[in-house]
């Protein structure tokens, strides 16, 4: 899932300066599951903003709604009906959600209430960890199901660096050395030959380095006539 966390309240208030009435929009997918921008968080943030701006003497009316997925047109299109009465829309979606709203409603100020962090999963209750950077060229079959691109701070492809100790990364004592686990898994899975192979320089053109990315699937694209 996409994992995000809420911006500090003061930062959000700064963004909202000059607004009298805003619509806080949650998202029912990833950010609901990671407790950052679902219905519950929209309620808490909206109440906090109402109280805080009221105490400041510049009360903002914050109304709430949550859509199933901010990143799909069919779920956000119905918001248009009442949008005119708001000075701004405060999105509690991920960065994709914010941009999806901005594309759908040009001319309307769409403000991000979250910082989108990474693609990952909860490793325990209340802890989320990054697992994928979307490099566009997956190597998990070679690396025993552990990603060196997203989990090794030096993005090594040829084994652990000299700073791996007791299975811990030198960059952060709270982080496992990804390559320690990769070595263990590779041995267990009979991938010793891959371990000893000098893995060639990665082609990053499939990553963000190659420019803005898009996927075109002609097989499922709608014919021009239906688009119209």
């Amino acid at each position: 899932m996409i994992v995000a966390e809420q911006k500090p309240l003061d930062e959000i208030k700064t963004m909202l300066e000059g607004c009298k009435k805003v619509l806080a929009v949650g998202c029912g997918t990833c950010v609901t599951v990671c407790f950052a921008g679902g219905r519950r968080e929209v309620g808490i943030l909206s109440a906090s903003l109402r109280m805080s701006t009221d105490l400041d003497g510049e009360a903002i009316a914050v109304e709430e709604t949550t859509v199933q997925r901010q990143c799909e047109e069919e779920y956000i299109a119905p918001l248009e009906a009442d949008l005119e009465e708001y000075d701004a829309v405060l999105s509690l979606g991920c960065g994709v959600g914010v941009q999806s709203l901005a594309r759908q409603f040009p001319g309307k100020r769409i403000l991000p209430a979250l910082n989108t962090k990474f693609m990952g999963f909860p490793s325990e209750h209340g802890v989320w960890e990054e697992r994928c950077q979307g490099c566009g060229n997956c190597v998990l079959h070679i690396t025993g199901g552990v990603c060196p691109v997203s989990r090794c701070p030096k993005q090594l492809f040829n084994g652990p660096c000299g700073g791996s100790q007791d299975g811990i990364c030198e960059v952060d004592p709270g982080t496992e050395c990804a390559w320690h686990t990769i070595c263990t898994n590779q041995l267990e899975l009979g991938l010793f030959e891959e371990m000893m192979k000098v893995q060639p320089a990665k082609d990053w053109s499939t990553s963000r380095d190659g420019g803005h990315r898009r996927i075109v699937r002609e097989d499922i694209r709608l014919p021009e006539i239906e688009k119209a």
Partner: peptide, 11 residues
């Protein structure tokens, strides 16, 4: 970290 030290040596 476009390339790692092994890939650097190979290059």
């Amino acid at each position: 970290h476009d390339i790692d030290s092994m890939q650097f040596l190979r290059m």
